[in-house]
């Protein structure tokens, strides 16, 4: 075996062990967090928000990938894009790809408003409990935990949404205008 091959294998083993350690650490710290009641509240808030934000996360995520591909002049499957917009075939027949992307972004707005509405409701409940109107000592701490769990998901939704809108603006500037 050549020297280069040995070094490559060593690097692969190093990377694998690093990944293994990282995932073990994450697993153990998650277990340790869920041992406390606050950690459990955090986990429930996180999972609940993840279920609500699923459509948004995957929608904006795949939109970002498609928009990047379009900006890099790669070929895009038009039929898939038409399906994503959820518009009837007759309406989308003569539309260009940027306008299809625009329709796709607009179709995600309903889910976005619903998600942010729920998150704001959670924030209001948390603040009410913080001001001792809902029993700060009994459930306030757990409501706050659920709120922070949801805010982690909301951060990803917010970041993906901003990126998607930024890419849409770039497409409008560079291609349409």
């Amino acid at each position: 075996m050549s020297v280069q091959g040995t070094i490559q294998w060593l690097l692969v083993i190093l990377l694998a062990s690093m990944l293994f350690l990282a995932f073990t650490g994450m697993f153990i710290s998650t277990l340790l967090i869920t041992f406390s009641a606050e950690g459990l509240a955090f986990l429930f808030g996180f999972l609940g928000a993840l279920v609500f934000a699923n459509k948004l996360l995957f929608g904006y995520g795949s939109f970002v990938i498609t928009a990047e591909a379009f900006l890099a002049n790669k070929e895009i499957d038009r039929r898939k894009l038409v399906k994503k917009t959820k518009e009837p075939e007759e309406r989308t027949q003569n539309l260009s790809i940027p306008s299809l992307l625009m329709l796709w972004l607009q179709s995600l707005d309903y889910y976005r408003y619903a998600y942010y509405g729920l998150f704001t409701l959670m924030l209001i409940l948390m603040l009410l409990s913080k001001f001792n109107l809902l029993g700060a000592l009994i459930i306030g701490n757990y409501l706050e935990g659920a709120f922070w769990g949801a805010s982690v998901v909301t951060f990803f939704v917010f970041a993906l949404e901003l990126t998607a809108k930024y890419l849409m603006d770039r497409i409008i500037e560079e291609v349409v205008l």
């Binding site: 967090i33 606050e38 950690g39 955090f42 922070w148 805010s151 982690v152 917010f158 970041a159 901003l162």
Partner: peptide, 25 residues
């Protein structure tokens, strides 16, 4: 601007989560 907004939001959320666990302990 977009990158800075996302980074700042991430910092805010991270510090909030961290301080929540620290304060409850």
């Amino acid at each position: 601007l977009v990158a800075t907004t996302i980074a700042l939001t991430g910092l805010f959320v991270g510090s909030g989560v961290g301080s929540y666990f620290t304060s409850s302990k």
